[in-house]
Design a protein around this nucleic acid. Structure first.
Lengths: 153, 153
DNA sequence: TTAAGTGCAAAAGCTTTGCGGGTAG
DNA sequence: CTACCCGCAAAGCTTTTGCACTTAA
């Protein structure tokens, strides 16, 4: 993410903290900054590593707690994916994902037609929908290659 | 899931095993049957509990290995969700999910308009897409209620 | 018959908790 | 000031691994 968007996002987070009466600590800011720089859906451990290089005193439980906090206040989002480790998404805007069902990797996918999708009525489910994502499920390039290798053996 | 669909699915699984040269063991059949009966995206542990009542000798690692196996051969699917435990989906057909970003719960959502969505071209990403899901993200009924309670305090 | 599958026990990995001390507002 | 937050250590889950035994085909 470029520097000016990053500054914007951090600024907006400070604002949200003020509104909600949440504390804006040095740890929280460093962790948010790290997520914004780690583009591809980092795990808590990825974030911990990145944070350790710039503020080595930050503890792992703080990273876990802070990531949940940041997601709760909307500064980042939780990623939905087929793996079994929590992953976070620095993006909060509308976008979509290509999901590999072989290796569980997933990458961002931009598409205006998908963005234009009308959100259906979900009131009878008691659900208040604010947003959506389309997951395109299939097989990534490297898993296709691996499958071809397997065939030829 | 009703009995006749269940029988169909098990039958189809036997067929796939024959084609792929995979072994069709008693454990695999019991585990598949359990997933088909557990409608709401069970975890490995949910499946283990269900299986234990009917074939108590099945070990937990077998459940883990078998669920991966069943997903690999397409008898079930992995669910994509914001939590950090692997969850499986007995459904392999086109459907969608309502995802609660507060409590990580998610439920099935049927909608023909969403089903009709054209899959965009992803060849430039090297991705072979076979399927898709739309995640409608928001807040579920009980989390809304909890939020209202919180407000009034 | 025999390679794939299973059970067991143990290890490894991820996440949460409790608590004393620190600090933003 | 003081309620909220953090670091530490430890516990609690979930998932994987290695190996000897069993079994489907």
């Amino acid at each position: 993410m470029d520097d000016s968007s990053k500054r914007d996002r951090i600024q907006r987070y400070r604002q949200v903290c003020r509104e909600l009466g949440e504390r804006c600590t040095a740890q929280r800011l460093v962790i948010l900054e790290a997520v914004l720089e780690l583009d591809n859906h980092p795990t808590a451990d990825d974030v911990f590593s990145a944070v350790s290089t710039r503020l080595p005193t930050v503890a792992k439980p703080t990273v876990y707690r802070t990531l949940e906090h940041l997601a709760r206040v909307g500064a980042i989002t939780k990623a939905c994916h087929p793996g079994n480790v929590a992953r976070y998404d620095s993006r909060v805007d509308l976008h979509h994902h290509l999901v590999c069902l072989h290796c569980n990797q997933f990458v961002d996918f931009e598409n205006e037609t998908l963005d234009g999708l009308a959100i259906p009525d979900t009131s009878d489910m008691g659900f208040e929908v604010t947003d959506f994502r389309v997951q395109l499920r299939g097989i990534c390039r490297s898993c296709q290659a691996r499958a071809r290798e397997g065939d030829s053996k």
